[in-house]
Design a protein around this nucleic acid. Structure first.
Lengths: 212, 212
DNA sequence: TCAGTAGACTTGTCGGACAATCTGCGAAGG
DNA sequence: CCTTCGCAGATTGTCCGACAAGTCTACTGA
């Protein structure tokens, strides 16, 4: 199943990333090179490289000669993240609607969400993000995807920080996704964009309220 | 003048970046850790970190256990870069036009271009990029700026690869910039966007033609 | 009370070492 | 003659230990 073992550094970076997303590493908590080196049993230089990678990704923040810490997101950040998300995704929807094209991977992500109907919203963060990511990736712009993936990582940090408080119910998310898919398939780009704006706007408000 | 000497790694990364932009390091040429270490008289570990930074920025590319090389850009990349540029910058212009706001730094960048009237187009790459960057930065979205800065770096790589062939004349660039500024100041967002699309479209075609 | 300082802690950089991996060339074999 | 194998050289990946440099804290002394 293609578990790429590229190297120690990437493995540590992945573990750290997962720890941040799981909320195991709370926002603001210190991540020293020595701590990471000991925890994952690697050399300090390797831990350093992994930390620097996450700093570049925006998950950790650091100033010279000081330990990295898990980046805490404030309301302004949430608003900026969602503003940018809306812009990118709106363009993607317009482009997809123009060709009446809905990537099958996005539909499958929705099916996965459907399987969690009645469950907790936290459990669908994964397929939810995948739905949106697939829509953006479908337009085939490497640069746009790169930017969007970075945003998704930050959204997941928000989720971790908020710890499931005030999330939107699963059935509502699923319903809105499906309506967006229908509008795109029908070629109604502006309709899809309007609905998307509501969809993301609601999430933004919840997160902004929960985070402050 | 704030020349931040944050550390050896950043210094090496900056030197390498400049070498790529200057065309001293041709697209496709190898950049081994040992070579960089010797050239800048730093430890191999430091050179390694600098190279990895540029890989993350997209200026170099690398596969595991193989030397990094200066990323060569093909026509598809140029088109993707400009497609994304257009999208981001168009949104920025709309937002600025809505408030009839033109950042003074953008005007100053144009003045700098004016000082090179009659000169070579290569000399104004810097202020040209600064004009566009300032417009985007002015909307105050950290994430949008991050994405745009990455694109600008790639544009500069294109410039280096094309070596000044087929660039657009200085006076034309200046004229178009000024008209964009006027339209934004007048609150005509869509007019500014239309002109921008032409402006960037022309540059895209030139680069695409020169690169293939 | 407050400034200054000593010490602990952490990062930044270095140099060396060795294994793992890739490359290219030449030899062995069909 | 062509293919394949293997080996030597080059390069990266990782580790270790060391020390300088910078930051933070808590204590001391005026």
């Amino acid at each position: 199943m293609a578990i790429q073992v590229t190297g120690v550094v990437d493995a540590v970076a992945n573990e750290l990333r997962a720890a941040v997303f799981d909320g195991e590493l709370a926002p603001g908590s210190l991540v020293t090179e020595a701590w990471a080196a000991e925890r994952f049993e690697v050399a300090r230089s390797s831990a350093k490289a992994a930390i620097e990678k996450l700093v570049a990704e925006g998950l950790l923040q650091r100033t010279p000669h000081r330990s990295a810490r898990v980046r805490p997101l404030d309301e302004a950040s949430v608003r900026d993240i969602y503003r940018t998300r809306r812009r990118i995704e709106a363009e993607a929807l317009r482009e997809l609607a123009a060709e009446r094209r809905v990537p099958s991977a996005a539909r499958e992500a929705n099916d996965e969400i459907a399987r969690h109907l009645g469950g907790s919203s936290i459990d669908i963060v994964d397929p939810d993000m995948r739905f949106h990511t697939e829509m953006v990736d479908a337009i085939g712009s490497e640069r746009t995807s790169r930017a969007y993936h970075a945003l998704v990582a930050e959204v997941r940090m928000c989720m971790a920080q908020v710890q499931g408080r005030r999330l939107i119910p699963v059935d509502q998310i699923l319903d809105e996704h499906r309506r967006i898919v229908e509008l795109v398939a029908a070629g109604d780009g502006e309709g899809a964009v309007a609905l998307l704006a509501e969809h993301l706007g609601r999430a933004e408000e919840r997160l902004a309220a929960a985070i402050s």
